[in-house]
Amino acid sequence: MKLSLYLKDKRYIVILSLINFITITLILLAFKLSKDAIIVIDVILVFNFILILGIDYFRKKFFYNDLFNKIEQLDKSYLVLEMINKPDFYEGNILYQALYDINKSMIENIKIHEEQMKDFKEYIEMWIHEVKVPLSSLILTFNNHKNIFNNKTKRQLKRLENYVEQVLYYVRAENANKDYFIKEIDLSKVVKNVGLKNMDDILDNKVSFKVENINYNVLTDSKWLEFILDQIINNSIKYKRNIRNSYIKVYALESEDKISLNILDNGIGIPQSDINQVFDKTFTGTNGRNNNASTGMGLYIAKNLCKKLGHKIDIESKENEYTQVTITFAKNKYFNVLK
């Protein structure tokens, strides 16, 4: 609170008081009071005026400064009412009450939305679990009657499965709740599961799947990591080049404070103009436009999941040469101490 602005706000009181002061002085002069008496009365008038304004100024200054400081300090500034003392002057009280009411109505509003989000999320999760039942029975039926169905059916089933998984993890990644469960897991096991899941696609596309130096333990949620890897490997298969020695190489590297998992392929790569946007929602880019199966969601969800798990995910690529995705896990010394 600035004194100059405060005084500007109180200008009518200042002007009226000045007129008041001059009028009283003139009246006193008209009554022919001694000069000394007039000076004493004037000094008292001026002193009282300053005192009244001063007290008012400091009471308000104390409250408003406190309010704004705390708003600045809090990262959730809407909680500021919990932090300040109720003001002891009337206008402040009005402001305080107004803020309180606004806050309350806002919180109620957010609560309604949160409930709706929660219901929606629960419904989606339930729906996904239900849709997996007919999906499972389709896969089993396909497997038992391979003479009737061909590999196209299998590919469509795989696509269906992947889209269902994407929805599930999208909901999990967007939601504020902690659905994950972090523990120490073996990278080779995750890579094996993802490899098995994509085995048919990898073999059908004549891509060789190389896994090297993968025996590390990292702290993560294995199901989430499987989904992330699945998206990356799906892309590697989808965007392979038509050359004879296509490969996907999965390997890990360890440094002092982190372990990185790398997925390298010699596919068509990503144009420089697109590389910074591949993690953006629904971004499909040049490659996606040439491939109608692209939704632009896989890497976006993968990035969000990494963010929640506290892993770093990066991508580098050179067109017509390679693409490499790197997931970096921090080593946690504290966890080792606890063990």
Binding site: G195, L196, L203, K206, V211
Partner: peptide, 14 residues
């Protein structure tokens, strides 16, 4: 056979 091999982390091709 392929599934069993891959399940044992032998990621070989056809």
């Amino acid at each position: 056979l392929m599934t069993d091999l891959w399940n044992n982390e032998e990621f070989i091709n056809d």
